[in-house]
Amino acid sequence: MNRDEFAELAVSYLDELTAFALRLTSNAADADDLVQMAFERAFRAWSTLREPGACRTWLFRIARNAFLNERRARNARPELQLVEFDPLRDLPVVPAEAVERLDARALEEALSTLAAEQRETLLLSDLWGFTYDEIAEITGVPTGTVRSRIARARGRIIAHLGEASEGRRRRRRSP
């Protein structure tokens, strides 16, 4: 792959990288800066990319690392990690039809209940279609951790839906 081919390929992922950056930063202005920073780094280091097929994963990893470095540079306090229950242990039974009826807003609300690393891992899998190995490459954690984060993220969302539907049932019953 020569430089022009790399440029062509990398720029074709610009819209996906922008959506990923928006998810990371939750802010359009910071996402724009992050995308530019990521592409600047990618264009500086393009020759280290061996396989054109790995370009998309590589760009996501660069964007993620740039985001983390930037956050560290701002001396942001580490995100509060809550010790949470294991959602897989007492998974409520939620019919698939109820999940299918979820609109984008309710889904975003459910996603917002996840720990940041669970949400990120789940979205890399289900929204951008990366394999567990590719997500491990992007996030720098073992594949087993990816597997566990995705399982717990799904369990957490299903538990959230179960709680929400139970709440609605209780409100209907009360006079």
Partner: peptide
């Protein structure tokens, strides 16, 4: 989740 927007024009 796969139906959410995965691309965003900068």
């Amino acid at each position: 989740i796969a139906q959410l927007p995965s691309r965003e024009a900068p």
